[in-house]
């Protein structure tokens, strides 16, 4: 219970905290690049500036989060996030190896399941229709350099 409460209190600050982490990442890696001098700037000059800017603005927005905490009233859509990730990752995994149509099929099916309103039967019919549409549009109308089935 207690940890839950603590989480709720810290939650509004996550965004700004993430920015500060990102700033540390930029500075940490960017420090490895040579900064050069003003007339002959090295690749590390701007990353340092950007890193400090990110750190500064992140800290300022953290301050405003602390003084004026605002929690988003919508809940975090874990289910949507998970299925969208699954859908796009399978597309990425299949497009090179299996071709456009299989990638489309699995990806669209996974995306459709994200919405619990969709039934199995309608999902199947719908997915097949989308595959046909994608095949027609990308392969035949646009003639993109993709293969419908198998490796390109």
């Amino acid at each position: 219970m207690k940890t839950g409460k603590k989480f709720a209190r810290l939650e509004p600050m996550f965004g700004s905290l993430a920015l500060i982490v990102a700033a540390c990442f930029v500075l940490g890696i960017g420090w490895g690049y040579s900064a050069g001098k003003l007339t002959q700037m090295g690749p590390g000059y701007f990353p340092r500036i950007v890193g400090f800017a990110l750190l500064g603005f992140g800290a300022l927005s953290l301050y405003s989060d602390v003084t004026n905490p605002t929690v988003s009233n919508t809940r975090f859509e874990w289910r949507n996030l998970a299925f969208v990730c699954a859908s796009i990752l399978t597309f990425a995994a299949l497009i090179d190896r299996a071709g456009l149509v299989p990638a489309t099929f699995v990806s669209v099916a996974l995306a459709t399941i994200a919405d619990s309103q969709n039934s199995v039967k309608s999902t199947l019919i719908y997915t097949l229709c989308v595959c046909l549409f994608a095949w027609g549009l990308f392969i035949h109308v646009l003639e993109l350099p993709l293969s419908a089935f198998g490796r390109g």
Partner: peptide, 15 residues
């Protein structure tokens, strides 16, 4: 609509 949108995004970015 949204599964098509997701597909358009994946395929569009890939191409």
């Amino acid at each position: 609509l949204y599964p098509i949108v997701i597909l358009m995004i994946s395929a569009g970015v890939y191409s």
